[in-house]
Write a protein that binds this DNA or RNA. Structure first.
Length: 541
RNA sequence: GGCGCUAUCGUCUAGGGGUUAGGACGGAAGAUUCUCAAUCUUCAAACCCGGGUUCGAUUCCCGGUAGCGCUACCA
């Protein structure tokens, strides 16, 4: 874990951070935030920082930490520094108490609000926290500190007596002040201090809250740009207050932070589900998890490409872009302001799709989510990226999947198969259904009626296959000779080329839709081809 | 409820005081090919509503409506 440079000179190089809280898997919204931060850092030759915001002990899980790293690893985007908030609690507390000493915060001995289930969707009208506000006004929605500003001595006494308390920021409500900041995306923002409640800095167990920890770390790590979800836009007013307090206190207390300039903010439009609600694992399940995309056979570069187009535009009609092109083109100016629908299909359940050629489908989880689950644009972009990949590269990636599904295939064979299916697959896992017949010895059962050519009958199928058997026994197994001899055979038989090819295709592939015939035969080889033709003939007779 | 933010085809978006409102995905039709793809062509598809400002608003302003977010000792 490296330390940030402690030079007091403000660097021209931006320092940005991605700060997920480990309370669930890495979802696509978080991934996009990470990517935008990364792009901004790389575009400006700045520093990318990963920080785990894990101050919520109740909800944090190790599994979640693993899941986040798993997702980020797949994305294959690096970071330069790495922190955990839980290892920096001393710093947070120190800053909280400095703020307290400065008179900008106070102890609140009111028992913690226990109505935890209050949230869940329904509006709470007027918020029934009765009583007076700190400033003595009646009937406000604002948090009530429970008692009109305890005298400091009293507060000290009760604290010394061991009474639990939370530390609250004293928002300067009386002054009628307007809190303002400029957002790189949403422009000038302002909000009356009177509309901001006295938020907690420290919980009664001494743990810092998100607001405190986040700002304390952002200040300490000298984050220059905070790029995050728009759900934090309103919170930012609190953060502006905290940053101001930190600047005020550290200016006197510690020499090192003699002019902590508040960071610049850039809020990202939220990713929402087709029903308009914010993406959440709770509501939408694994379809919003990054690893689901990985397992479905998305290329990380395609997934990144897709996410970038959600709420950002290069403004030149380009859509299919490489990481480098994205990095070059990225800027905060291209970011939009309205929510973005990720057009996935919910409820497309994860029933296992059977791999035709593999009865005991080990690779079943690779096939859990049907293609329609995902945003069609993501799928299309993935196909674009697949087609843009060098054959060797694509082949290597496909081989991994094919082997994971239980087929034993050599890299050489895969290299021959890949060009035949490259334009026929949209997701990497499609290789299993598009090319399975290359990998098995025994074709799965198929309906003999499939062998019947267009405008033909079973007799024609038999005639064609019988003739094909002869031809294929002698012809050289290369595209051109196969093409010529089979066409010639069709002519002799008095059938159309298509009527000749189709029965052979079905005999060899076990289905009607498959890659081009001659290339397929070439890769398959004479032995397997003849065996399958033979089998088809027997099926008919 | 209060506060904040947002509003262009179904979706992602470009644009901007006068345009045939552009592109992409998806959809439809066609071309091509040994099937399926890929590719190419064509078509359908949008400026939330109401007031202003203006010679002229989809664009600027205000209001409404709708959606979203925040309003926790969650992040």
């Amino acid at each position: 874990m490296s330390q940030p440079s402690s030079t007091s000179a403000v660097s021209a190089r931006p320092r940005v951070r991605f700060a997920p809280s480990p309370t669930g898997f890495l979802h696509v919204g978080s991934a996009r935030t990470f990517i935008f931060n990364w792009l901004y850092a790389r575009h400006n030759r700045g520093t990318m920082i990963l920080r785990l915001d894990d101050t919520d002990v109740e909800r944090n899980t190790d599994a979640s930490v693993d899941s986040i790293f798993e997702g980020l690893k797949w994305l294959n985007l690096s970071w330069d520094e790495n922190y955990k908030q839980s290892e920096r609690l001393d710093l947070h507390r120190k800053i909280a108490w400095t703020i307290f000493e400065k008179g900008l915060a106070y102890r609140d001995f009111t028992p913690a609000h226990t109505g935890d289930a209050e949230r869940s969707g329904e509006q709470r009208s007027g918020e029934q926290r009765s009583g007076e506000t700190r400033s003595g006004q009646q009937g406000t929605w604002l948090f009530n500190a429970g008692m009109p500003e305890l005298p400091r001595a009293e507060s000290d006494r009760r604290a010394a007596a061991g009474e639990p308390f939370a530390l609250r920021f004293r928002v300067p409500r009386e002054t009628g002040e307007l809190i303002r900041f400029t957002d790189a995306v949403y422009g000038e923002q302002s909000k009356a201090a009177a509309d901001i409640e006295d938020f907690a800095l420290l919980r009664s167990d001494g743990m810092p809250t998100y607001h405190l920890a986040s700002c304390a770390d952002d200040a300490d790590l000298r984050i220059s740009h905070i790029i995050r979800g728009q759900d934090h836009l309103t919170n930012t007013f609190k953060h502006v207050l905290i940053f101001a307090a930190i600047a005020e206190t550290t200016g006197a207390a510690t020499s090192k932070a003699a002019g902590v300039a508040p960071p610049q903010f850039a809020h990202l439009p939220l990713l929402v589900a087709p029903d308009g609600t914010k993406l959440s694992k709770r509501r939408h399940g694994p379809v919003v998890s990054v690893t689901t995309y990985r397992d479905a056979g998305f290329l990380p570069e395609a997934f990144i490409n897709f996410l970038c187009l959600l709420g950002w535009s290069p403004k030149n009609d380009r859509e299919h872009m490489t990481l480098q092109e994205l990095t070059d083109a990225f800027s905060l100016e291209g970011i939009n302001r309205s929510n973005v629908v990720v057009n996935f299909k919910e409820a497309a359940a994860s029933t296992n799709v059977v791999i035709p050629a593999l009865s005991d489908a080990q690779g079943s989880n690779l096939l859990s989510y049907p293609e329609e689950t995902f945003d069609p644009k993501a799928v299309w972009l993935n196909a674009e990226h697949i087609r843009a990949l060098p054959i060797e590269d694509l082949s290597a990636r496909l081989l991994l999947i094919v082997r994971a599904a239980g087929f034993s295939v050599t890299p050489e064979k895969m290299l021959h198969v890949t060009p035949l299916i490259r334009e026929r697959i949209k997701l990497l896992r499609d290789v299993l259904t598009a090319a399975d017949f290359f990998f098995v010895n025994q074709l799965p059962p198929y309906d003999p009626a499939e062998l019947i050519p267009q405008k033909g009958d079973m007799a024609m199928a038999l005639k064609v296959l019988t003739r094909a058997r002869e031809v294929l026994a002698n012809v050289e197994f290369k595209h051109d000779p196969l093409d010529q001899s089979l066409r010639a055979a069709a002519q002799e038989l008095g059938v159309k080329a298509g009527q000749m090819f189709q029965p052979i295709r079905v005999a060899v592939c076990g289905r009607k839709n498959a890659p081009p015939l001659f290339e397929t035969l070439e890769v398959l080889g004479r032995e397997a081809t003849l065996a399958r033709v033979e089998q088809a003939i027997r099926k008919i007779q």
